[in-house]
Design a protein around this nucleic acid. Structure first.
Length: 255
DNA sequence: ATGGCTTATTGTATAAGA
């Protein structure tokens, strides 16, 4: 089973890239973030024609998450239980016996801003909720844009970014607390080097100079960790005309 | 380096992203 995550920065603009990528990379599950559209505009028909079921939690202009799957999806849940949030950032379903959670973590804008406080509260709520989800669903994978570069290897210039949004100690602690629940950063099961990124700034030729960050992650539970076969970042879509600033991360598990 | 680029908005400048 292959699963992937991709922040598409507007599905309205990126649908052709998504359809092309799915045609070239036949996978079972694709989690999308920043669809930036209301559900009424979500391209269910195009995705169905491509062979994918889809579930979506969207809103106008901002946020929005979706799961595309070749398998049937059951027990669909929107959002984080017991956490009031107008922003559409989480959607979950059970697929082929695996609990799949798609997340778009708050960006936070700047350390100590109001949005940063929201990011930290949001991450605490996610952590609390996942504690129960892991008991309920031992085979669990949580894919998405975490807006956190877990350590200095995941940032092109740690000195320049020190203490900044995406790398601040409190954000990194929150990421570590997710791992402490019994989750594992699947990319790091296979690759320990630096310079592997999933996002590059549109400005200053960020991609060409590999000035990026690894902020899109696929975390797996203990039960799935032993079944992981490979986890790779596919940089190809970032090279296209008018790309998303993020590129897909793909996990293969033997289930 | 204050920025750079891209997206969306009942737009023609502003907000947000990371």
């Amino acid at each position: 089973m292959k699963l992937a995550t991709w922040n598409v920065n507007s599905l309205n603009v990126r649908l052709p890239h998504v359809l092309d990528w799915l045609a070239e990379n036949p996978i079972d599950v694709l989690c999308l973030q920043e669809t930036k559209q209301e559900d009424a505009k979500f391209p269910y028909e195009d995705l169905k024609n491509a062979g994918y079921h889809a579930i979506h939690s969207g809103q106008k202009t901002y946020n929005g998450v979706a799961i595309l799957s070749t398998h049937e999806m059951t027990d669909v849940v929107h959002g984080i239980a017991d956490f009031e949030d107008e922003q559409k950032r989480v959607i979950s379903a059970t697929i082929n016996g695996v609990r799949v959670i798609c997340v778009y973590v708050v960006n936070g804008q700047a350390v100590d801003s109001e949005k940063y406080d929201y990011k930290m509260r949001w991450l605490t709520a996610l952590n609390n909720w996942l504690t129960g989800e892991l008991l309920k669903y031992p085979k669990l994978v949580i894919l998405g844009d975490y807006n956190i570069a877990p350590d200095d290897r995941d940032c092109h210039d740690p000195a320049a970014w020190e203490g900044n949004i995406l790398v601040s100690p409190r954000e990194r602690d929150a990421f570590e607390e997710l791992l402490a629940l019994g989750l594992h950063d699947s990319f790091r099961l296979f690759e320990s080097g630096e310079g592997h990124f999933s996002w590059w700034d549109y400005r200053m030729m960020g991609f060409r100079r590999n000035h990026g960050m690894r902020i899109d992650h696929i975390l797996v539970s203990d039960a799935l960790k032993e079944k992981c076969v490979a986890c790779v970042i596919d940089k190809a879509p970032r090279k296209l005309e008018r790309p998303s600033d993020h590129t897909p991360v793909v996990l293969e598990v033997s289930v």
